[in-house]
Design a protein around this nucleic acid. Structure first.
Lengths: 193, 193, 193, 193
DNA sequence: AATGAATGAGAATTCATTCAT
DNA sequence: AATGAATGAATTCTCATTCAT
C-alpha cells in the first residue's frame, strides 16, 4: 500500500530484476504489471523507467539474469572434470532443483518463457541462448561415458525430460515430477558406467 | 485484417472455439483479445457474449474441447488391445503429432496452459484432468509389458519427455524434438519386448 | 464532471471532430488530452477510440474537416464568376472571418498547424494541401484583373498577410489585424480596377 | 543521441537558453522535454533546475533572449537615420532573415509562440512585447516617407506579411515566402520614394 | 554545481464487458 | 442473434519537479 510522503526508497537494478522475476514466475509476464513490480520494490511505477526503458527491456534482463545465474551455479558443474560423470549429473540436478523450487531465483525460461515467446518473438533468441547452454552442459556430462552421437541424443532427451517434468510439477503443484527425473537420470547414468 | 462487409460467416460455438484455439496457440491467452477472436469469426466482439459468459469461460471450453479431441483420437488408441503395445505407442505418437503440428486443432495444454494457469488458477483443474488422462493412456500401453510400478514410472517419464519436447520444439521452431522423442520411445519399447 | 451511471451518451464522429477542433484551437494540440475531448463530448476517454485509432488520427480528421469546410464555404466563392473580383474577394474575407472568429468551426491550420507540424511531420501534407487550395482560390480572384505572374505574386502576398494577421490577432487578442487586412485587400483590388 | 561519459560541457544560463531555443524551434515547446534540453547541454535534467525554476521560466527567458537579440541586431537598424529608409528596410530584412533561417538563434515568437501562448497565457505579455517593438521599428522606417497614419497602416501590414510568410515558409519548407516578402517590401518602398 | 534516484500526476491506449436497439 | 456504442478500469509510459548526497 502506498503511504503518502513515504521515505524515499533506494533500490538497485538487481533488486528490481529479482522482484520482477518472482512476480513473472508467480503470475506470468502478461499478468504482471509494472505497478506490481514497482510496489514489490517499494517504488512507484514511474520510477522503474529510471532503470529500464520498457517492460520488455526488463523482461529481457530478467531472462539474462536467470541465464547467468544458471551458468554460474549449474552449467559450470558440467565442466568440472575433477568429478566423475555421475556426481556431476547428480550435482547439476541438485543445484537446478534448488533454483526451480526457490521463490527468489526461480526458473522461468521454460514455462513462462515459451508462452511469452509466442506473443513476443523478440524474447526468443534470449530464451534459445539459455537452452543451448543447458543442452551443451548436459551433453558434456554424457560425453564422459558416450560417444558424440549418443551424448547428443541423451542430452536432448534429458533436457526435454527435465523441462517436461517442470511443467508437470507446476501443473500438479507437485515436485515429485522433477525429483523423479533427477533420480532416474542419475540411476541410468550409474548403471551405464 | 478486418475486411469491411466481409460475408457473414455461419458461426456457432464450435467455430468460435476453433478460432479461439488457433489464436491462443499463436499468440497466447493474454495477448489474444476478444476482438481478435470475434474478428476471426466474422463477428463483433460484443456478439461473443451470446455464446460465452466471459473470456475465461471461453478458455475453459477451448481446453475442454482439446481434451475431448485428444480423448477421442489419441487416448482411445491405448485401450485398443487388438493392437500390440509397440503399434499402439507408435500410433499414439503419430496421432498426437498431427495435432501438435496442426494449426487448427493444435495442442495448448502444455505451454499455453502452464503460463495461463499461473495467472488464472481456475484453469488448473481442467488442465490437470487432461494430463491425468494422458498419463493413464500411456501407462495402459506400458502395462502390456511391465508391472504396475514400472509402467507408472515409464508413463510419468514419457509424458514428461513429450511435454518437454513440445516446449523445445516451440522454442527452437523445430519439430525434431518431438519427432525424436517419438522414435526413441517406440524403439525402447520394441527393444524391451 | 463524470457522474456515475450517467445515461449513455450518443455522439457521432462529427460531434467529436467539432469538439476536438474547439479544444485544439483553444489549448493547442499538445495541451489537449483525449480525456478533455471526451469530456466535452460527454464520453469517457476510452470511448473515443471507437471512432478514431489515435489522437493523431483524430487530428488529421479535424484538419481535413476544416479544409472541407473552407473549400465549401470560402474557396468556392473564388470560382463564382457571376460575381466580380472585388465582390468575390470581399465575400471570401467575410466568410473566412466568420470562421476565424467562430468558436465552433474556427481555423487551426495556420497557428496550431504550424507548431503541431513541427513535432508531428505526419501532419504536414494535410496542412500543405489546405494552403495550396487557399492559394489557388485567392489567385483565381486576382486572375480576373491581372496576368498569371502578377496574380501569383499577389496571391502569395495576400495569403501571407492573412495568415500573419491571424497570428497577430491571436497574440494581441484583437481582431483588428484580420479586419484591417480585409479592408486593405479589398480596397487595393478596387483601386486597381 | 546521448553519449555515455560525454565530455562535461561548460554550461551556463546562456548555453542552456541557446540549446532550449534550438529544440523549441525544432520540436515545439510541448514536444521538447527538460531531459531533451539537459541532454543537449550535457547535463542531467535535474541540473537544469539550478538555473531555472521551471520549464515555463526557461521558456520565458528563451523568448526574452530572442527579443533582446532582435532588438540589438534588427530593430536598432530602424533608428539609424544615417541610412535612408530603403536601405534600412533592406537591412532589417537581411538581418532578420539570417535569424529566421539560422538554426542557432532562430525565431520562435511567431509560430511556436502563438501555439504556446494558447495553452500558456502567461507567455502572452512577453510575446506581445516582442511584437510591439517589432511593429515600432518597422513603423519608424515608414515614418521617413509617410505620415503617422499611413506609417502605422503600412507597418501593421508588413509585420503581418512577414509573420505569415514565415508560417508558410515553415509549412512548405521553402524559404521563398520570406524572401519574396523581403523583395516586395523593399521594392514598394523604393517606388514610393 | 551537479547528480541520480524518486515522485506523482497524467498521458495515450487497450480491453473485457454491458446493453439498448 | 447480432450490432455497435459506451463503459471503466487497468496498462504502459512520460515528464516536470524535488531533493539528499
Amino acid at each position: 500500500m502506498y503511504i503518502y510522503n513515504m521515505p524515499r526508497q533506494k533500490v538497485d537494478e538487481k533488486t528490481i530484476i529479482k522482484e520482477a522475476l518472482k512476480l513473472f514466475r508467480q503470475k506470468s509476464y502478461h499478468a504482471t504489471s509494472m505497478a506490481d513490480i514497482a510496489m514489490a520494490c517499494g517504488l512507484l511505477k514511474g520510477s522503474l523507467y529510471h532503470y529500464f526503458h520498457s517492460k520488455e527491456d526488463l523482461m529481457i534482463k530478467v531472462i539474462e539474469s536467470v541465464h547467468t545465474f544458471f551458468a554460474e551455479t549449474v552449467f559450470t558443474i558440467a565442466y568440472n572434470h575433477s568429478l566423475d560423470a555421475v556426481d556431476r549429473m547428480d550435482l547439476i540436478f541438485t543445484e537446478a532443483e534448488k533454483i526451480f523450487v526457490d521463490q527468489e531465483s526461480g526458473e522461468i525460461l521454460g514455462n513462462v518463457g515459451v508462452e511469452t515467446a509466442l506473443s513476443m518473438p523478440e524474447f526468443q533468441p534470449t530464451i534459445q541462448a539459455f537452452f543451448s547452454d543447458y543442452f551443451k552442459a548436459i551433453k558434456e556430462v554424457y560425453r564422459s561415458k558416450f560417444d558424440e552421437g549418443m551424448a547428443n541424443e541423451l542430452a536432448e532427451r534429458s533436457v526435454s525430460e527435465i523441462q517436461g517434468a517442470l511443467t508437470l510439477s507446476r501443473i500438479f503443484n507437485d515436485e515429485k515430477f522433477i525429483k523423479n527425473t533427477h533420480l532416474r537420470t542419475v540411476a541410468r547414468l550409474r548403471k551405464n558406467a
